[in-house]
Simulated scan of single mutants.
Amino acid sequence: MRLFRCAACDQLLYFENRRCEKCGHDLGYIAEMNELAALEPDGDAWQALGQTGGRYRFCANAAHDACNWLVPEEEEGEFCLACRHNRIVPDLAVPENLRKWRKVEMAKHRLVYSLVRLNLPLESNEDREGGLCFDFLADAPDGSTPRVMTGHDEGLITIALAEADDAEREQRKSDLGELYRTLLGHFRHEVGHYYWNRLVRDAGRLEAFRAVFGDETADYGEALKTYYSNGPLPDWQSNFVSAYATAHPWEDFAETFKHYVHIVDTLEMAAAFGIQVHPGLDSTGELGAEVDFNPYQACPVQQMVDSWLPMSFALNNLNRCLGMSDAYPFILGPGVIQKLGFIHRMIHRQVEADPVAASTGEEIPPGRGKNEADAPEGKPEAA
């Protein structure tokens, strides 16, 4: 995430701000410009301060204080680039639903920010069958139906509204023995399943994928039963980013995709703040790092990892000073870095249907990768 400043008074802003607390200007995010703009009214529309031409209206979800993104006046539809993917939202007449949905929307907008910055395909289910869409569902208050489960099915991502309750999410985290569980993490994991469809299955990269992650044709249901009965594989941390990633290659990919976006987005923010890590007692220099590159671009993945490890170590130590748990309680073993490299090159369209290049982690020069191809929908996706 980059840092934003108010164009009227230079005040630093949060991505979710709707109003500058210093100068009072209304604010709106313009996705195509990656700018949180200070706004001036222009008739029945808005214009970005200092921008000639270009009139905007707020996304319809701004009326619920759930979105601060703008829609160009000439575009059809009432929803912004992020909210056009919503298929079902909860009953907003219920105050508790509204409160939780706002938290869900905050995470979703940060997800879409990253997808846009990575130039990933963002078709909705209105654009193509199997396009990306979201259902945000609340559990029945009387318990008359099974609990909503977060998951993915051929482009449809379901987010359980209960996950927006911090206590409930922490309880589920404890029950499942997880190290980490957040709304943003759910979005990044589930969208990883969607991009497995789009950028692996439909783009002819199955053999390259299997060379790194394994054979996804293994029975998914049986794999999950085995995982929940027996736990993760022994010594899993060398090759898997999380215990759950060991359950099945689909879950391994989705978990690794999630962590890739975690790393890229956090490094962008570290760069925006000019954060450098240079421990005074580190005589080797191995724990020193600064982000002097754009992690959203096609830099070598090892450069990202070399910056991330010291940054996350410093972040964890700062959290411990505040009596908090580690912000990033994960180990990036050699196998994990290899998988991050596959996803990095795939996102930047540098992975061919070449299992040798994929398995060695070779950096393929830009321009050699296949373009995405639309293909018939195949094997049903994992939840």
Rank of each mutant, 00 (worst) to 15 (best):
G288N: 12
D26N: 12
R18C: 04
D166Y: 09
Q303D: 13
L92A: 05
P279C: 12
C23L: 07
G378L: 11
R57P: 07
T150N: 11
N371L: 05
Y180R: 12
S124H: 10
L12P: 12
I347D: 00
F273R: 14
D235T: 06
D139G: 02
L39C: 14
K379I: 09
H64S: 08
A138K: 06
L287R: 15
R110M: 01
G280M: 11
C299S: 14
V277Y: 12
F134S: 04
Y29D: 02
L199G: 07
E154T: 10
T226K: 04
T217P: 02
A245G: 14
G367C: 08
R169W: 03
D282G: 14
V200A: 06
A38S: 15
D26G: 08
A45G: 06
S238H: 02
G361E: 03
L156K: 02
A218Y: 02
Q11C: 07
P121K: 03
L309T: 13
V356A: 11
L132I: 07
T226R: 04
V336S: 01
V241H: 00
G28N: 07
V112Y: 00
G285I: 12
E222A: 13
C80V: 01
Y328Q: 10
D282R: 11
C20V: 04
E168L: 09
M106V: 02
N319C: 09
R368K: 11
A327C: 10
F240P: 00
P121S: 07
I364M: 15
N61Y: 11
L224Q: 01
W69K: 03
M149G: 08
D292P: 00
D292F: 01
E372P: 01
A164K: 00
N68D: 05
P329Q: 14
L13T: 04
E105N: 06
L111P: 00
L315N: 09
E168W: 11
A373Y: 02
A375K: 09
D44M: 08
P334S: 07
S124D: 13
C133M: 12
L39M: 15
E163K: 04
N97Q: 04
A373T: 10
G50L: 04
V94Q: 09
E129H: 14
Q303N: 08
A82H: 05
G28Q: 06
Q338D: 03
C6P: 11
S238F: 02
D127P: 11
R320N: 13
M106G: 01
L287G: 11
L309W: 03
